[in-house]
């Protein structure tokens, strides 16, 4: 049964159990939020997504408020904006929220909220310095940008169940810790990068992309991971011909945005200087470069000769379990229809 809620005076229908934030987002209404993530649900921590609801005394967090038929919600009342502005100002009041140098610039939920609320600079500042933590091979931690939303922790414990991250300490000292508050590289962290993908700001950063492109300069290209057989879907964030970073494709089968360390960070072998760039033909103890025509003719000629002399079964081939289907298809087609043998296999059982 379809139900209706009114947001800022306008009616919106929705089906089933939904939160006010979900209904608003589905209808393109922006409510700033920082700790909510659809993969882990409401956290109720940031208190930025508050709205005013007719008949309720206090402001309500839209991420956890169930939308009810006939509910009247205001997302832009002065009371709402004042509370939102205060919280964002508080979050900006310490740390280092410098968009100029931040990798997340253009893809930052705190930046979006501040922009929406018209905050040009934090009205009050309380100095506090925290060191960056650079021990990880692929992940940089910048606690000065952390807003303690807890999404990385939820991701680590509830989604990928690696159980390395948690909150440590209390109150204003609350920090995300790796194991016993260890440097990342000494901890049990496997750098799957789920935390990086969950981070709404620039507190957890994929190192490989640092300084190489602004977020708006890259375009996502969906593809399939080249490593194990799970078939994870990933988005390559590409600028020119360069992969700047990789994220799991949210909502995609089968991985729903999750990746492992290899899928997320193991992509740049394609840019290696050691790539083969020309056909090579053996000469003495080494190889010499050759043209495609020469190399292809040599192979075709040799195959033809062996077929004539010894029959097609004197040729055998191994296909590749790493390359695309279409390559394997053409290789077996070559062996069966051109060479005339079924001597085609690959490492099917290992």
């Amino acid at each position: 049964m379809s139900k209706n809620i009114f947001i800022n005076g306008k009616g919106f229908s929705f089906e089933g159990e939904k939160t006010v934030l979900e209904v608003a987002r589905e209808n393109g209404i922006y409510i700033p939020s920082l700790c909510y993530h659809e993969k882990v649900g409401p956290a109720n921590k940031c208190r930025v997504c508050v709205v005013e609801v007719d008949g309720m005394k206090d402001l309500q967090t839209s991420c956890s408020l169930a939308a009810a038929d006939g509910m009247k919600v205001g997302t832009t009342t002065e009371k709402v904006l004042e509370a939102q502005r205060m919280v964002v100002n508080l979050l900006l009041s310490n740390g280092n929220h410098n968009c100029l140098s931040c990798e997340a610039n253009g893809d930052c939920e705190l930046q979006d909220a501040a922009y929406y609320l018209g905050i040009e600079r934090p009205p009050f500042v309380i100095e506090e310095h925290k060191e960056r933590e650079d021990s990880g091979a692929f992940i940089l931690r910048d606690p000065e940008k952390c807003i303690q939303c807890g999404r990385c922790i939820e991701g680590c414990n509830r989604l990928v169940v690696n159980e390395v991250l948690d909150f440590g300490y209390r109150g204003g000292h609350t920090e995300v810790v790796w194991d016993n508050d260890m440097p990342l590289d000494d901890s049990n962290c496997v750098e799957c990068g789920e935390c990086v993908q969950m981070c709404p700001v620039g507190a957890l950063i994929a190192k490989k992309g640092m300084g190489r492109a602004r977020r708006w300069e890259t375009k996502p290209v969906r593809t399939t991971c080249p490593y194990c057989g799970v078939g994870c879907q990933l988005d390559l964030h590409v600028k020119d011909d360069q992969i700047i970073r990789v994220t799991g494709t949210e909502g995609a089968q089968p991985n729903m945005g999750h990746l492992c360390v290899k899928g997320r960070f193991g992509y740049d072998f394609i840019y290696s200087d050691e790539r083969l760039t020309t056909p090579l033909i053996r000469e003495n103890d080494g190889f010499r470069e050759a043209s495609w025509d020469e190399a292809l003719n040599l192979v075709a000629g040799k195959f033809t000769q062996i077929i004539e002399e010894s029959g097609p079964d004197a040729i055998a081939g191994v296909s590749c379990a790493r390359s695309i289907n279409e390559d394997s298809y053409n290789m077996q087609k070559l062996f069966r229809s051109v060479i005339g043998t079924n001597n085609i296999d690959h490492c099917a059982r290992t």
Partner: peptide, 22 residues
């Protein structure tokens, strides 16, 4: 209250800290 704030929600965590400082 700044000492006791659990720290999970932003207005309390940052609010106690800011008010104390001021």
């Amino acid at each position: 209250y700044e000492h006791e704030s659990c720290g999970q929600c932003a207005p309390c965590r940052k609010g106690t800290h800011t008010i104390k400082s001021k």
